[in-house]
Amino acid sequence: MKTVFKRTPSLKDTQTHYCPGCGHGLAHRLLAEAIDELGIHDRTIGIAPVGCAVLAYDYLDVDMIEVAHGRAPAVATGMKRTNPDKIIFSYQGDGDLAAIGTAEIIHAAHRAEQITVIFINNAVFGMTGGQMAPTTLLGQVTTTTPQGRQSNGQGFPLQISELLAILPGAIYVERCSVYNPAQISNTKKAIKHAFELQMNGAKGLSLVEVLSPCPTYWHMSPARSMEWIEKEMTKVFPLGKLKDIA
């Protein structure tokens, strides 16, 4: 018998603190596999977010640093400019990237920084207790929107990838998901493509958004969460390539 699936070396052999069915574990695996398949393990440096994935450096076996909430694209800018031969990525949730860090991501893309951003969108602030995020869907019940989010007063879901895609400095923006095995494979392809652009010295920012389940604060079973992404979340956040200069 031939082993056709096993853990990849850049994913540490350890238990994560994530809730059952959380999408962060999947995103970590895809990221680690992309790094190993591209053979860039020794020259990749990652940035962990503030949020549920704050301990990502305990799970990914590459050099990583932890930065202040939302500031990853600013720090990544410095890292890439001083170490142009390194592959730099930030791993950020929607609370990190689409709320407090909106200015950083927009200006990093605007300056065409040659970094890769993995953007995990689960439409909620997970780490702090399930509060509404800018990405929360209309009608979605969160700790701070017990009646469901209303556009009147609480605004609309923020489509940050669409915003970024219009900037000339963003060279690749794709929205993917992990709700079934086909989507999962596609997400890995997207992450690899983003890294390849950076490896080839493409002049600009690459971002892969991943619609990812948070069963705990969606108050759903893991299986139901996957279905909710497919049926509800993708209506507001349509999947696909928003931009690719390659």
Binding site: V4, F5, L11, Q15, Y18, H24, G25, P181, I184, S185
Partner: peptide, 25 residues
């Protein structure tokens, strides 16, 4: 040996083996 289970496992705790060549997998 399709590995669908391992592909979706968020905790990467499934190892899959199979008795055929990769193309078929």
């Amino acid at each position: 040996g399709c590995a669908a289970c391992a592909t979706i496992c968020p905790d990467v705790v499934i190892e899959v083996s199979r008795e055929v060549n990769i193309v078929e997998v």
